[in-house]
């Protein structure tokens, strides 16, 4: 169980825009150990979805990877040709998207779409259909067989997300990327979907990259968490470590802002002052320094190093003492 399913090393990429290049991801290093669920958390614009799309190699045309490697199955995804990459998609890496209302094709039936994605399989159409029905059953779809002929618009948002997850599971991928899968759903459905993913986790031998801005969801389901801020990994480690001993000021602020922890007595919403920085010009110092409440002079001038806090917990901050453990 010590192998890494996904091993991202020093990944940087930028988007070409009319206002100049935007350095959306900078020197990302992170991994998904096999059989584990790794959460990626961060504000909007921190690069979470870009990271997921980079792994799938489905970035829009104006994106350029400038450095790094995405290790998967012993190779580097970035060096694969398009045909080889296409062979992996849906088969060994599957992705579930944020908005279930728009992520399924509106004019093809659920069954057609679930058979379509088995296009590499040699099974008979009837066998593929059975497999699709089985996947639907696994995500808790009642009367799965007869649902295959219905179209996405005939299902509610929560059901559609179950269908999307079922689709992702049909080929039993080694890695499942769940990009904000609960964001578009209301709280009850969110809990159901998270519960479902936890159940399925025992069912599939795969690993999950769980992207969310919702700390509660991350805490429920993940083994490890990676905190992304403005395109940089500022802290990562085992889930219990991060939640009980957050080291980076950004992580602390993020946890303080979690709606689940807000004190109702003061009736005050905690916020992180300021905005995600403009990534056209990346400053020399710590990326979080302009918004950091505990920053010192060094923070503006010098890039903080990754400090090991022990137990696989790493934070990128000047204030974390060296050799903490």
């Amino acid at each position: 169980m010590n192998g890494k399913v996904l091993d991202i090393r020093d990944l940087s990429l930028r988007f070409a825009t009319s206002a100049g290049p935007v350095h959306a991801l900078r020197n990302i290093t992170m991994a998904v150990p096999s059989g584990e669920i790794v959460g990626v958390v961060g504000e909007s614009g921190s690069g979470k979805s870009t990271l997921a799309l980079a792994v799938m190699r489905l970035l829009p045309g104006n994106a350029t990877v400038t450095s790094g490697a995405i290790g998967f199955g012993g190779g580097d995804l970035l060096t694969l040709d398009e045909e080889a990459m296409r062979a992996l998609r849906g088969n060994r890496i599957a992705m579930v998207f944020q908005d279930p209302m728009t992520s399924l094709n509106p004019v093809r039936s659920i069954g057609q779409q679930m058979v379509d994605i088995q296009h590499r399989g040699r099974a008979s159409p009837a066998e593929k259909r059975r497999k699709a029905a089985a996947a639907l059953k696994r995500v808790g779809m009642p009367d799965a067989e007869s649902q295959l002929d219905r179209h996405p618009f005939q299902f509610s948002g929560g059901m559609r997300q179950r269908i999307a997850i079922a689709m992702a599971l049909v080929q039993r991928p080694e890695l499942l990327i769940a990009d904000e899968v609960t964001t578009a759903l209301d709280v009850t459905l969110e809990a159901q979907i998270i519960h479902l993913l936890r159940e399925l986790r025992a069912d599939i031998d795969g690993s999950i990259l769980f992207i969310s801005h919702n700390l509660g969801a991350i805490a429920e389901i993940c083994d490890r968490v990676v905190v992304l801020y403005a395109g940089e990994v500022v802290e990562h480690g085992p889930i219990a470590e991060i939640f009980s001993h957050p080291q980076h000021p950004y992580t602390r602020a993020l946890i303080a802002c979690d709606p689940a922890r807000i004190s109702t007595a003061t009736r005050e919403l905690p916020v992180i002052p300021g905005d995600v920085p403009n990534l056209r010009h990346v400053a020399d110092g710590c990326i979080f320094q302009p918004r950091c409440s505990v920053a010192i002079a060094k923070c503006a001038a010098e890039r903080p190093p990754d400090r090991d806090c022990g137990a696989g917990h790493v934070a990128r901050c000047h204030l974390v003492p060296e050799g903490l453990p």
């Binding site: 296409r86 062979a87 992996l88 992705m95 998207f97 094709n105 379509d116």
Partner: peptide, 17 residues
């Protein structure tokens, strides 16, 4: 440009299909 096309691509469907 719609999301479901991205989903289809994420399943490696042939571009012609």
């Amino acid at each position: 440009g719609e999301n479901h096309i991205r989903t289809a691509r994420a399943y490696g469907l042939p571009e012609l299909q």
